[in-house]
Write a protein that binds this DNA or RNA. Sequence first.
DNA 1: TCTATATTTCGATATTACTAGAAATAACTT
DNA 2: AAGTTATTTCTAGTAATATCGAAATATAGA
Lengths: 100, 100
Amino acid sequence: MDIDSIAKALKELGHPTRLAIFQRLVKSGTNGLPVGVIQEQLNIPASTLSHHISGLVSAQLIKQRRESRTLYCVVEYQRLKQVLGFLQDECCADEQAATK
Amino acid sequence: MDIDSIAKALKELGHPTRLAIFQRLVKSGTNGLPVGVIQEQLNIPASTLSHHISGLVSAQLIKQRRESRTLYCVVEYQRLKQVLGFLQDECCADEQAATK
DNA sequence: TCTATATTTCGATATTACTAGAAATAACTT
DNA sequence: AAGTTATTTCTAGTAATATCGAAATATAGA
């Protein structure tokens, strides 16, 4: 509900690399993707990727789950819904008023 | 459609002050709000506000319309819809698959 | 044209973010 | 225990962003 918290989430999504990571994760569903697979797909250094991932985690947009040596990243859909809800709030009503 | 363009929009929304500006504008509908009114509401220096507004304009999230000495800021609802669409894409389908 | 109002641009400083190699940690295998 | 794989943390250099006072611009009115 807190505007600062929503701003933080949007800020983390507002970087091409992080948005690309998030996009892949959203499409990968609740199983998520291992860090290593994301790294191969985006072809960036591991330390850079790790930095971006921790940004998404700190905004609660994703969480991590370990399976032995592999760390999976998974979208927090509740959080995404919260962010979408904020942006939609009182949006469409006004837009319809405009186009009619 | 371009991911960099969406990232740019999210980046601009990802700042507490700019998000507060945008929120007020969304709720003000197609008439928008004068820069001066936003300034009074948020109580920040004019130059700082102007800087933030130009960020939102550069991301095509808002546009400006002059009425004599007063500049109105208005949300570009088409653009907002585009950003929302990107975040929703393949989101809810997976989430439903998850919760069932 | 002079003054007032509304807002932006300039300039300078401070803070934060991005990037990536190297070293460290975690967990498995032999 | 030693080695291997997966990923993070450390460190540091560079770049980008935020802030805001002062000066500049745009428009209107006297």
